[in-house]
């Protein structure tokens, strides 16, 4: 792989809350245009890793680079330029509850760009359609949407400025299997057509098997990265238990059968 192709580079990351160390000496590379799934047991810090990379959690030690730049070294005036290059979808969408879906999508446009209102409306309507929401959902408030629709709306907001990296925190959690499969497909389609790099924290074995190019497993405060096949050969006890469990076998078999 070329150096330029590493869009996220984590070196020696250490995060801790009080005396509890979550990650220690964690290294991770994410390549341009791939879908990376992050898995791990409860409390191993999957979401913490995501939050550390997007700058919501301050690491105790180590270096995080996005597009070759360490956000910690940037001045407040330089940060926005980096911010617009990634989008984050939180677990339940985290839509601003006092704004409609369209207004949620336009928040970043208003903040960072100077676009005419009509164009912003048109772009927001486009994003609403792109994530597969009905057109009338745009005028609704988050409380009026179902869980699945809120996630789609959250995705539309994350895509508002056409970011290069998309962070997803358990995108299929709380969706029924059909909705989850449709959401997986949506992410895959958008990733391919928009050329996105996707960093996805997930519990969903079906998502892992269906759309992830590589999988990062959080064990022993670090990550082991590899393809599904690599992990199937790994003999770390947790990784064995995870990828050889009955649910994993079904997910992998289904995926092989379908494609």
């Amino acid at each position: 792989m070329e150096e330029d192709d590493i869009v996220i580079r984590v070196r020696g990351l250490r995060t801790q809350f009080g005396a509890q160390v979550v990650h220690d000496g964690l290294d991770l590379d994410v390549y341009r245009g791939e879908v990376l799934g992050v898995v791990g047991g409860s409390g191993t810090g999957k979401s913490v890793l995501l939050r550390a990379i997007v700058g919501l959690v301050r690491p105790a030690a180590g270096r995080i680079e996005l597009f070759g730049v360490d956000p910690a070294s940037l001045s407040p005036s330089e940060l926005p330029a980096l911010r617009v290059r990634y989008g984050v979808l939180f677990q339940d969408g985290a839509l601003f509850s006092s704004l409609t879906v369209v207004e949620n999508i336009q928040v970043a446009m208003r903040e960072y760009l100077d676009l005419p209102q009509q164009l912003m409306n048109q772009l927001a309507a486009l994003k609403v359609a792109m994530v597969g929401l009905p057109a009338d959902a745009g005028a609704k408030f988050p409380a009026e949407l179902s869980g699945g629709m809120r996630k789609r709306a959250g995705l539309a907001r994350a895509l508002a400025l056409d970011p290069e990296i998309l962070f997803l925190d358990e995108p299929t959690a709380g969706l029924d299997p059909i909705g989850a499969a449709a959401f997986d497909q949506l992410i895959r389609d958008l990733q391919q057509s928009l050329g996105l790099t996707v960093f996805m924290v997930t519990h969903d074995l079906d998502s892992l098997a269906a759309i992830c190019d590589r999988i990062a497993v959080l064990v022993d405060k670090r990550v082991k990265t590899g393809t599904m096949a690599d992990h199937l050969r790994d003999d770390h006890p947790w990784i064995r238990a995870y990828f050889h469990g009955p649910r994993a076998r079904v997910a992998i078999a289904t995926n092989q059968a379908s494609g």
């Binding site: 409306n121 609403v128 792109m130 057109a135 745009g138 391919q192 050329g195």
Partner: peptide, 23 residues
Amino acid sequence: QSYMPLLRVVETAEKETKEHPPL
């Protein structure tokens, strides 16, 4: 060639917004 899929996604989404213009 690399921009073709993007254009297709937008075309599909645009048809969608045309059929149901927001009120």
